[in-house]
Amino acid sequence: QEEEKEIKRLAKKFNASEEEARRAWKKAGGDPETAEKILKKKG
């Protein structure tokens, strides 16, 4: 599933848990760029 792959990639890229990545993904409405910004800010 595309979403799961994206979440795993985000978690790995930002050294975050999949739970954090999933939360960022949901907050971003499934937009990878926005999710990255959220995780970057958090990191």
Rank of each mutant, 00 (worst) to 15 (best):
G43W: 14
I7T: 02
A28I: 01
E4K: 04
W25V: 03
K8M: 14
F14P: 01
S17N: 06
G30H: 05
L10P: 01
I38F: 09
G43E: 11
E33R: 12
E4G: 05
E2K: 10
P32N: 06
K26G: 09
F14T: 04
E3D: 14
S17G: 04
K12M: 13
R9Y: 06
G30I: 00
G43S: 06
E36H: 03
R22M: 06
R23Y: 14
E4R: 07
T34M: 15
N15T: 03
W25I: 05
K27N: 12
G43N: 09
K41P: 07
E36I: 07
A16L: 11
K37Y: 08
R9M: 08
P32H: 07
R23Q: 14
L39N: 01
K40M: 10
A28N: 02
W25C: 03
I38E: 06
E3V: 12
R22H: 04
A21E: 00
K27S: 12
E3C: 05
E6V: 10
E20K: 04
Q1I: 13
E36S: 08
K12Q: 11
P32R: 14
N15F: 05
L39M: 10
K12D: 12
K12L: 14
Q1W: 13
A11M: 10
K40C: 09
K13D: 06
E20T: 05
K40H: 14
L10V: 02
R23M: 14
A28D: 01
E20R: 05
L39H: 00
E3S: 11
K8Y: 09
A16P: 00
K37T: 05
E33H: 10
Q1F: 14
D31I: 09
K5F: 14
K13Y: 06
E3Y: 12
D31N: 10
E3R: 06
L10A: 02
K41R: 08
R23G: 10
G29Y: 09
K27L: 15
K40A: 14
W25E: 01
E2V: 10
R23N: 13
L39F: 03
K8H: 11
E33D: 10
E19N: 06
I7Y: 04
K41E: 15
E33T: 09
K27Y: 10
A35Y: 02
K5G: 09
K5W: 12
A35H: 00
E6C: 04
K26V: 12
K40N: 15
A11G: 03
K37W: 09
E36C: 07
K12T: 09
G30K: 06
R9V: 06
P32D: 03
K41H: 14
E20G: 02
E20I: 06
K8A: 12
A24N: 00
A35R: 00
G30E: 03
K13T: 07
K13I: 07
K8Q: 14
G30S: 05
I7G: 01
E4F: 08
K42G: 15
E4Y: 08
E4S: 09
K5E: 15
L39G: 00
A21G: 02
P32K: 11
A21F: 02
K41M: 10
L39S: 00
E33G: 09
R9I: 08
L10K: 00
I38Y: 10
T34I: 15
E36D: 04
F14N: 03
S17H: 05
E20P: 00
A16F: 06
T34L: 15
A21T: 06
K27G: 09
K26R: 12
K13A: 09
E3I: 14
R23I: 14
K26Q: 15
P32I: 15
T34V: 14
E20Q: 07
W25L: 12
R9H: 04
T34Y: 12
K8T: 10
A35D: 00
E6H: 13
E2Y: 11
K37P: 01
G43T: 08
R23P: 01
R9E: 07
K13W: 07
E18D: 08
G30A: 06
E19V: 07
R22I: 06
K12W: 07
A28C: 04
A16M: 09
E3K: 08
G30W: 03
T34F: 10
T34W: 11
K37I: 06
E6I: 13
K40F: 14
D31M: 04
I38A: 03
K26P: 01
R9W: 09
N15W: 04
K8E: 11
E6M: 12
E3M: 11
E4P: 04
K12Y: 09
E20L: 07
E20V: 08
G29L: 10
G30F: 05
I38K: 02
K27T: 14
E4C: 10
